[in-house]
Design a protein around this nucleic acid. Structure first.
Lengths: 355, 355
DNA sequence: GAAGAAAGCGAAAACGGTTTCGTGTTAATA
DNA sequence: TATTAACACGAAACCGTTTTCGCTTTCTTC
């Protein structure tokens, strides 16, 4: 290792501010060409044992790490995936992101997270920011704004450019791409069935406005279950609230007039709120009223009583989405058919229903 | 615009698969040099009106967007910031990430989120993945593993390479960098004071093992308040639980023996659990026992009763962290002093305490 | 000892931009 | 008319890699 001595002056310079070192630096110091260094570090057969050892030792000593940006430019592959979600404080999306992270990281990918904040404009801006080389593909769930506006041109452009896209949960038929969703109809159906089996007959449905694809499906499952039990759907039993806007009075007066013996909510928060409103009116859950919500999140788990919920398996959904995307990215098999994976929801029974 | 006709054949080729177009393509089609195209698109004075208009129109027509990777390589600036957090399902971190996102996006930066999962090893791996050119700077909160191990070499390396770093919430004195934290001592002090002012005298403290910097501070605040009220600190009133591991029986027997008239928790979840345990034993909150927790999250807000909490202002913390980082990134003023911003916690009074 | 093969290395193009500097043309000035 | 300044543009280096291809030199082999 005495050849190292000759690099002492170089070493001095580096010690002060450990700037990152490049192939060129190594080549200069070791008096070989850049190509040789590059090959030596990849253990190419082309380079002699001696040279390789020398170069590798030097690189290790100076903690050489190849510059990712340069590599990305060269291979036109960034090893980044872009994730655009409406929100990150709500349990479901965080678990999906976590699932994506987990799978992507294991495969050596980084995850760039963007929040559309339920806004169409931000969704578009975020896509454009990332679509110019920053990422190898997108995973996203539509913002409320986009579902309302029904404008999917930004998605179309991205797919036409050949950038792989996986849609999850809030998806659209207008775009041809891989998708992963839960069977929302079945989830709501099973939940409603559970309530009916308990003997409940006046089941209120807390849902959102119609433009949400998932709410529509869940409403359908609810209605289907009622009909399968020979009951008709009473529209007055259905409360459509503006998204995420919990109008407590509205919900209060609704529940007060309907006086339901069970409540099904298409999300977590409406269920929790509904339950509290009922409890405040002196009703006991589940003795007087049963409650079931969607999204098996922390709120449902830690509520009092804990709330029976339709689990959406967000983490699994995230993993599957990441798997589908990376599959596309790595073997760009142009004509592979687009798939839609449907995850079975699970009804997690807790204390807000009878068993 | 009749010059456009001559590009019809080019247009044909592009129509099939809208591949992204480069400066070189434009230069070739318009029979000018790449430099001219580059300048024209930046509206350089150097280029004539005619040429600029022609080039800009063509670029617009073919939806030219510069390749971010190439620009990053050239300027050695990625406009990406790396965020490494222990976790993303817990409210506090999600709000911080949201704050970072918000500020960073407004400044044209993307956020690459990595989860250390409370593990030292993952934290190191994530840093290394990003530290080779992928990002302009880091924002992070130490994982439990790192706080336990007290090994900060990965942070040291990064800062020595000149990569800006901002630590938030779970920070360490061992590393010289910008930091943003809340005044944990004050937060706990005020919470304890609130309980004492209510007349509570047997205040149980639910905390974690000592290696967490924030828990240590919060414990101190609790103790200080007691002493300021002339009370001595009874170690048996303090329950140190392994992090995030809610051992319900342990907590149950603890609360059962102590029979506190108030409970202070250094996080959100222990508080919620403590409250439920007490309620199950027939105690009324806040009549018999008052409860205060840290992290003003969804759980506290929607619990029954809602829980008085010390708000950590995660979103604000994220914004400040992002601001400090971007400031560093954009004017790399080598010798600017490192700052530690301390955010004042706020006690949000709810129904789990008396007023 | 000559021819061919193999080994070991370097030059250069490429990825897609930015930017400096030089050059040819035209218009203004002496 | 000769000189010069302004204008408009292009050539080329550069960012840090990868990779192809070609050139020496040495080793086989007959």
């Amino acid at each position: 290792m005495n050849w190292l001595n000759s690099y002492l002056d170089f070493s001095k310079k580096q010690v002060n501010l450990k700037q990152k070192i490049t192939l060129k630096d190594i080549a200069r110091e070791l008096d070989v060409s850049i190509s040789t260094v590059s090959k030596a570090l990849k253990n190419s057969e082309e380079i002699s044992r001696d040279t390789k050892e020398k170069i590798q030792a030097f690189a290790k000593l100076y903690n050489y790490k190849p510059n990712n940006i340069a590599i990305s430019l060269k291979n036109k592959r960034t090893k980044n995936i872009g994730v655009i979600v409406p929100d990150i404080v709500h349990y479901f999306f965080t678990t999906v992101v976590r699932g994506i992270e987990k799978y992507a990281n294991a495969k050596g990918y980084n995850v760039i997270v963007c929040l559309s904040d339920e806004s169409f404009d931000k969704e578009v801006i975020n896509m454009e920011m990332l679509a110019n080389g920053s990422i190898d593909g997108f995973i996203m769930s539509l913002s409320a704004g986009t579902e309302k506006k029904k404008d999917f041109n930004h998605l179309k452009e991205v797919t036409e450019q050949g950038i792989p896209l996986v849609l999850f949960d809030r998806v659209t038929d207008e775009i041809n791409c891989d998708k992963v969703v839960i069977d929302d109809i079945l989830g709501a159906y099973n939940a409603t069935k559970k309530l009916l089996d308990e003997g409940r007959r006046k089941i209120a449905l807390l849902t959102t406005e119609d433009f949400f694809s998932v709410s529509r499906s869940r409403n359908l499952g609810y209605e289907k279950a009622l009909r399968d039990y020979g009951l008709s759907v009473d529209e007055t039993h259905i409360l459509k609230l503006p998204f995420m806007d919990i109008e407590e009075e509205l919900m209060g007066s609704f529940l007060n007039t309907i006086k339901p013996d069970a409540v099904l909510s298409v999300n977590e928060i409406f269920g929790i709120y509904g339950m509290r409103v009922l409890q405040r009116r002196g009703l006991r859950v589940p003795e007087d009223v049963s409650v079931i919500g969607f999204t098996d999140g922390l709120l449902a788990k830690h509520a009092n009583p804990s709330v029976t919920s339709v689990a959406q398996h967000g983490e699994k959904m995230g993993e599957i989405a990441a798997e589908m995307l990376i599959e596309r990215v790595e073997n760009d098999d142009e004509n592979a058919e687009y798939r839609t994976q449907i995850i079975e929801p699970t009804l997690i029974e807790r204390d807000s229903t009878n068993n």
